[in-house]
Write a protein that binds this DNA or RNA. Structure first.
Length: 416
DNA sequence: TCTGGGGTCCTAGGACCC
DNA sequence: TCTGGGGTCCTAGGACCC
């Protein structure tokens, strides 16, 4: 049996951990640049605030109901996520971290309701984060079970084990709420007169394969209780690493863009080193403001190869700036840019180049020193010149909460 | 005025091989 | 006039996830 533990309204719950006065009050968390709503407490959901909605569209609703608004604070969410995962690992034999707020749990040893209730209360007690747990024979069904667990408010856990129960539950479960069915597929399924998950489960598999891709067949198998997506606790490395941002103010100048791109490249390289891997390709993309219908649009992108896989700041920044020169056009004003590193490999799998001229041992030492210094002194204290000298690039974060758990100056003070 | 960021996997089509 | 068959690898784009 596979469990799915999912943190309830995760980012909103994180904001509440060190500020209990927010309990029972509507809370929302915003995306980068304070643009869209990306997390809502139950109270905010009840007000009708939608996921992904631009905040300026619900300004009145927020004001009238005194909704507490927070800028995104990823160092806080990332750290609390780690705590939740560590707590889960202390209770089950194997954990597959699936996202910042979700993990699959191995319950092949033993399973009962009391165990789930205990795990849930332990996570709440140790981290302050409320979670729900659903358990079933497959990951897809565990997702369904978790959905039901969230509805059972007082318990917050649900076991979906016998096939009659599964059928009964699937009959009342909309296809659009299934894991792996998004907007497009749900529309197509509805057009084919398939509305609930039981109907999907009972379809002819060959027919389904013809109408959709192999993924839909895998999904169907999982609904029948047969595993398509096996449990995998290996912490494998990321296959691609991306840093992209929308700019608070649109950018026209090449040199300004170059500073952003250099910073994105350095950020990617440092993530790459954190997972001890190397990349052999770099992509760069630029975007104009897609919401301005009266302005000519331009979405260029380019992919360049490294002769030898690398995770070196200097090489990666140089390549990113080379890419920028190739696709930049002064005829447009840009709203967003991003750097993607891909084809990542581990050190032992690197294919060296016969014509490589870089002293890689020396460079690795240099990167090690840079990481060490920046770790102590603060991000980007030691930097590549083309990153520019601005302490913080221009991104809007007007309602940022303290980084209670990752910054000495932000540690909670208690008055006794 | 203001509209997020970071991932995975699959497929079709092109370029190439013998 | 007539122009094969069987592969691999790569990329861009599209679907999905959180």
């Amino acid at each position: 049996m596979i469990g799915l533990a999912d943190c309830n309204n995760f980012y909103a719950s994180c904001e509440r951990v060190f500020k209990p006065s927010l309990n029972n009050k509507p809370v929302v968390v915003l995306s980068n640049n304070d643009g869209c709503i990306i997390a809502r407490s139950n109270e905010s959901k009840r007000l009708g605030i939608k996921m992904g909605e631009p905040v300026f569209k619900v300004k009145n609703l927020i004001k009238e109901n005194n909704v507490r608004v927070f800028s995104t604070n990823f160092s806080l969410y990332g750290d609390l996520s780690k705590r939740v995962m560590t707590t889960l690992k202390s209770e089950v034999s194997s954990v597959e971290v699936y996202s910042i707020d979700e993990a699959f749990l191995d319950f092949s040893d033993h399973l009962n309701l009391d165990r789930l209730i205990y795990i849930r209360s332990k996570v709440k007690k140790w981290t302050g984060i409320p979670i729900s747990i659903g358990v079933a024979p497959t990951k897809t069904l565990a997702k369904v079970a978790n959905y039901l667990a969230k509805k059972h408010k007082e318990k917050g856990v649900f076991i979906l084990d016998d096939d009659d129960l599964i059928k009964k539950v699937l009959k009342d479960f909309s296809v659009q709420d299934l894991w792996g069915v998004g907007r497009r597929y749900s529309r197509k399924l509805n057009q084919l007169n398939i509305h609930n998950a039981l109907q999907l489960r009972n379809l002819d598999t060959d027919w389904l394969r013809k109408k959709f891709s192999i993924n839909m067949v895998r999904l169907q198998k999982e609904l029948k209780g047969e595993v398509s997506y096996s449990f995998d606790s290996n912490d494998s490395i990321r296959k691609s690493i991306c840093t992209s941002r929308s700019f608070a103010k649109e950018v026209r100048e090449f040199n300004t863009l170059k500073e952003y791109v250099s910073n994105f490249a350095v950020n990617c390289a440092s993530k790459l080193r954190k997972q001890k891997s190397y990349c052999s390709k770099l992509s760069l993309f630029l975007m104009t403001n897609r919401f301005k219908s009266n302005v000519k649009q331009y979405y260029p992108s380019i992919t360049l190869d490294f002769l030898t896989p690398t995770n070196d700041n200097l090489e990666i920044v140089t390549m990113a700036n080379k890419a920028l020169k190739r696709i930049y056009s002064s005829n447009f004003i840009y709203k967003k840019a991003g750097v993607v590193l891909h084809n990542t490999v581990l050190k032992e799998d690197i294919q060296m180049s016969l014509f490589d001229q870089i002293d890689r041992k020396k460079r690795a030492k240099l990167m090690c020193s840079i990481d060490y210094l920046n770790n102590i002194l603060g991000k980007n204290k030691v930097r590549v010149a083309s990153q520019g000298l601005k302490e913080n690039l221009d991104f809007k974060r007007n309602n940022l909460s303290p980084s209670y758990t990752t910054k000495y100056s932000d540690i909670l003070t208690i008055k006794i």
